[in-house]
């Protein structure tokens, strides 16, 4: 949720915080429970509940709601809240499927509860459900020909499909990775792994190829790789490997600072690209074997 994001934001601005990630997320608060009891609960769940509430407890075709996010289930202790529902059944106020009363004995209810809590325990951070079997998803939906036309018009000034991007479809077989790479302009080696990345990755990578020229009063020019720059200081490493740093409002006076960011072209793309064009170009590049 938002708070977590705020934490991400804080990490962004406070590298110091990165080291102290929250030790466990709320789903793990209760511990994994008793595996033997939970195994028995699974058998009961499969015969009595699964048809309506789903194999993964996230709700089923027969109209039972998601029980992983049920506040009643989350708040339950050893079946004290689940038991009464199971025994009395439920008639939804809005109509639809009725949950029939099931007169299960106490130890069955306990086993069911143990199982349900053990599934909650496997939930992921930020309220995400437990990992499920991977579904094959098709990311390759673009029109390669349209992509080729776009490439010739917008990319060919800086890239060549027989030069630097030759065989990129084989080099980066993962479509998601390929798309992330070409839109960002990151080289595969520097590219962030899939999944929530460290926010600084792209900025850092981009920065490393940025060049800067500082012009001092009197005309002297110092050029090199940009290390950092804010309103007050600009720092660079010259091609000879020397670190040079300047106070932008100091003496000698910095007359001008020129930044050459080779990836400026890519940043400009972001504001122009439609999803369709993005998918088209990805399809085209994926075909460059």
């Amino acid at each position: 949720m938002r708070v977590f994001l705020a934490a991400l934001l804080a990490v962004l601005s406070l590298p110091i915080d990165a080291a102290q990630a929250p030790p466990a997320y709320p789903a793990q608060q209760r511990g994994p429970g008793d595996p033997v009891l939970a195994a028995r609960g699974l058998t009961l769940y499969t015969s009595f509940c699964r048809a309506c509430h789903g194999a993964d407890m996230r709700g089923g075709d027969m109209g039972g709601p998601n029980l992983l996010r049920s506040q009643l289930v989350l708040g339950d202790k050893n079946g004290d809240a689940i038991g009464p529902v199971v025994r009395a059944g439920r008639v939804p106020a809005a109509g639809g499927t009725v949950m029939p009363p099931m007169p299960l004995p106490d130890d069955d209810v306990r086993a069911l509860a143990e199982y349900m809590h053990s599934v909650v325990f496997t939930a992921q951070p930020q309220g995400a459900p437990p990992p499920s079997a991977a579904v094959a998803l098709n990311l390759l939906v673009g029109n390669a020909r349209a992509g080729e036309r776009y490439f010739k018009a917008e990319c060919a000034s800086c890239h060549s499909t027989t030069g630097d991007l030759a065989g990129i479809g084989s080099r980066v077989p993962n479509i998601e990775q390929l798309q992330n790479n070409w839109v960002s302009g990151r080289r595969p080696a520097a590219a962030a792994p899939p999944g929530p990345p460290g926010p600084a990755v792209s900025a850092q990578t981009a920065r490393s190829t940025v060049r800067v020229t500082v012009t001092l009063a009197g005309g002297e020019q110092v050029t090199g790789r940009l290390v950092r720059m804010d309103e007050f200081t600009v720092s660079l490493t010259t091609d000879a490997g020397d670190y040079r740093s300047f106070t932008r409002r100091g003496t000698p006076r910095v007359e001008a600072v020129r930044v050459d960011d080779p990836l400026a072209g890519h940043r400009a793309l972001w504001t122009k690209l439609s999803n369709k064009t993005m998918h088209d170009v990805t399809a085209y590049l994926a075909g460059l074997k």
Partner: peptide, 19 residues
């Protein structure tokens, strides 16, 4: 996670931060 039941919490997506 294209499940028609929807995901939960902030699950069901992945992002690539461009900058």
């Amino acid at each position: 996670d294209p499940d028609p039941r929807g995901s939960m919490g902030l699950g069901g997506k992945r992002w690539s931060i461009l900058g």
